[in-house]
């Protein structure tokens, strides 16, 4: 479910601060659709050439465009804006706090085309505006899973209905970790190989617990127990314990899971009476953090084991002398 359209208003509200945007005119047109992730400087169009004009893009007027327009007569300017704004452009932005001509203001009011001003320089403005648009139109999906933050890492918990994702999440909450989403998670791919997750449900931080009903996580666990958005750092799948399945026994290799085109570390957590998936999940997360710091327990163990097997003297594990010193009560 990837969004293909947004509105100028949404873009404005989201980027107003970052882009230092001020609405100058044409506010009635804020509901205009934005469907392109590109931004354009209408150079040739201002000179009267409209073939292949990208009318679905946000139009930007910078130093050069403003200077060209200043050199025209008011009548000529009026003709230029009349033609430019006859197209259904989403909006127009004037950068560097440059003066906006009265002809543009008049035409924008007549056609209800939003015109913004920013003090940003043109190139910087274009780069940042496109960044937001590409993220807005980037791939996203709603998946049936929980998202919890453990030790700063976002863990997506998957598994069949009824396997105990919610109970596992509750235990993690009791252990001090943070709740992001239960049951339906929107995951979105953003720049920098990141996948961000948030609750799909507009009514955030509610959970359904079989046997209890719907609970409000903030009321029960507190404001520090929830997080609105979290980058997904690991995927865990809860599975019913299967005798015949070859579970990860060494950790010499890392399981992987592909989400929206990104490869993430994966752990399969077996669910079985008497085994706590929450603890295993915690440890899987801790181990991943250790790996990120360069500690690969399985590899270190194996290297030491091989070294020990190769050495001529085979120690038993402790010598009697050491034992006395360390364990004497």
């Amino acid at each position: 479910m990837t969004p293909t359209r947004t509105t100028v208003q949404k873009w404005f509200l989201r980027m107003q601060y970052e882009l230092s945007l001020e609405l100058v005119s044409g506010g009635e047109g804020l509901d205009r659709k934005l469907s392109s992730s590109q931004v354009t400087r209408p150079g040739l169009a201002l000179a009267g050439y409209f073939r292949h004009f990208d009318s679905e893009r946000i139009q930007v007027l910078g130093q050069q465009e403003t200077s060209y327009l200043d050199d025209l007569s008011p009548a000529h300017r009026e003709r230029v804006f009349r033609e430019l704004l006859s197209y259904p452009i989403p909006c127009l932005v004037v950068t560097k706090s440059l003066a906006i001509s009265p002809e543009l203001l008049a035409e924008s009011q007549r056609t209800r085309t939003p015109v913004f001003s920013t003090r940003m320089a043109t190139a910087s403005f274009i780069a940042r505006a496109i960044l937001f648009l590409e993220e807005e139109f980037g791939p996203s999906e709603v998946i049936h899973a929980n998202l919890v933050e453990l030790y700063g890492l976002g863990v997506l918990i998957r598994g069949k209905s009824g396997i105990g994702k919610s109970e596992c999440t509750l235990e993690l909450l009791k252990r001090g970790h943070r709740f992001v989403a239960d049951d339906s998670v929107i995951v979105k791919h953003v720049t920098g190989h990141r996948v961000i997750g948030t609750a799909a449900h507009p009514l955030k931080h509610y959970m359904e617990v079989r046997g209890v009903g719907i609970i409000d996580v903030v009321s029960l666990f507190g404001v520090t127990a929830v997080q609105a958005y979290k980058r997904v750092g690991m995927v865990a799948t809860l599975e019913t314990w299967d005798e015949k399945r070859a579970y990860v026994r060494t950790g010499l290799e890392q399981e992987e899971y592909e989400l929206l085109g990104e490869t993430l570390p994966h752990a399969t957590i077996p669910v079985h009476p008497g085994r706590s998936p929450a603890v295993v999940l915690e440890v899987a997360t801790m181990d991943l953090l250790a790996r990120r710091m360069g500690h690969f327990a399985a590899r270190e163990f194996n290297d030491a084991l091989i070294k020990q097997m190769q050495s001529s003297t085979q120690p038993t594990g402790y010598e009697f002398g050491d034992w006395d010193d360390q364990y004497e009560l």
């Binding site: 479910m1 709603v142 049936h144 209905s161 009824g162 239960d182 049951d183 339906s184 799909a200 449900h201 009514l203 509610y206 959970m207 359904e208 719907i214």
Partner: peptide
């Protein structure tokens, strides 16, 4: 839906939710 072994999904306007989950259905 939970009485059955099969997976159940409901789709509306491109949104696909798990029919065995109350919260998903309210979405």
């Amino acid at each position: 839906a939970n009485q059955f072994e099969s997976d159940v999904f409901f789709v509306k306007d491109g949104l696909r939710v798990n029919g065995k989950s109350v919260m998903s259905l309210t979405l």
